[in-house]
């Protein structure tokens, strides 16, 4: 047939950017620091990779200021894989975000794992065509990030610990408050907006729909297939795995098992099968052993 459609295209829209998050659902996004790791992640079935300079466990160990990665490393990873490539910018560092957009990354993570560049303001994400994901520990924080233009929210957890406890806490905070909102009457929603420090229209929308207006993924502390399935059963729609893969004894089979567990998260027989013989997971650390909580960064 003839091409009746005008060839007019709109790019960088909320629909295409939220839409990419929709496409990542049910998948595993893996932190990688080299093109070789990116290949291992893609081979294992990662639906996207997160390019960063050091995995959170190393950032935690080494200390210092943690920043956006070298563009050469990001370009190397883009050349190595076909799946989407995400990269991290510091909270509030809109110039790092401008650079990442110029590099053509598919998603920017405005991440508390890097050292914040601004202690009051997050990036105005509406100024970009590239989509953003932001972390949140509770519903109010999630809604503030959405009101700034985030197209995906991930529960923060506590990155680099290999400990799922904080991710569980944050998912329960977010999803528990959503469940309460759906029970609130219209007058109570004004109070909820105050308590959550979140825009009233978003609060009213959630009371109506019972879900965030953007996908909710889980990050921070996933180290085993069971951890991934736990996050999914609690209500996450996909998972980010940072240090959990490349800080384990044998990354490739563990990565593949976490992919299988995320897809088959409700099938305990498959979970039992894929959890076998993966070698040692990352050692991990307890919350009382750490002196810097990354989840407290962001406002």
């Amino acid at each position: 047939m003839s091409d009746q459609s005008s060839a007019t295209r709109s790019i960088g829209t909320y629909t295409v950017n939220r839409g990419l998050a929709e496409m990542l659902k049910g998948g595993v996004i893996m932190d990688v620091v080299t093109p070789e790791q990116a290949k291992i992640a893609e081979d294992a079935g990662a639906c996207a990779v997160m390019a960063l300079e050091r995995v959170p466990a190393d950032i935690r160990r080494d200390g210092g200021v943690s920043r956006m990665s070298d563009p050469i490393m990001i370009e190397g990873i883009q050349a190595a894989v076909k799946i989407p490539v995400m990269a991290k910018a510091r909270i509030g560092h809109f110039v790092e975000a401008q650079i990442l957009q110029a590099l053509g990354v598919d998603y920017i993570d405005e991440s508390e794992v890097l050292t914040p560049a601004d202690e009051a303001h997050h990036i105005d994400k509406f100024k970009f065509t590239v989509p953003f994901v932001c972390g949140a520990t509770n519903l109010g924080e999630a809604l503030r990030r959405i009101s700034e233009g985030a197209c995906m929210i991930r529960s923060k957890g506590e990155a680099g610990t290999g400990n799922i406890v904080e991710a569980v806490r944050h998912l329960r905070n977010i999803l528990g408050d959503i469940r309460k909102l759906t029970q609130a009457d219209s007058a109570e929603l004004f109070q909820w907006a105050k308590v959550l420090q979140a825009p009233l229209p978003l609060v009213q929308e959630i009371a109506e729909t019972g879900k965030l207006p953007v996908p909710l993924f889980c990050a921070g502390g996933i180290a085993t297939p069971a951890d991934a399935a736990l996050a999914m059963q609690l209500g996450a729609e996909a998972v980010f795995v940072g240090s959990g893969i490349f800080k384990s004894d044998d990354p490739a089979p563990r990565a593949k098992a976490i992919v299988e567990a995320t897809t088959h998260f409700e099938d305990a027989h498959i979970l039992a099968k894929v959890s076998r013989g993966l070698g040692a997971p990352m050692t991990g650390i307890g919350m009382d052993e750490i002196n810097q909580r990354y989840a407290e960064r962001g406002w």
Binding site: D3, S6, R9, S10, I11, V16
Partner: peptide, 19 residues
């Protein structure tokens, strides 16, 4: 062709005439 229209920054919306 996989990703034949490019990366996410090239993702777009457009009206289509469907037979």
């Amino acid at each position: 062709r996989r990703n034949g229209y490019g990366r996410q920054i090239d993702s777009f919306e457009a009206d289509l005439a469907v037979e």
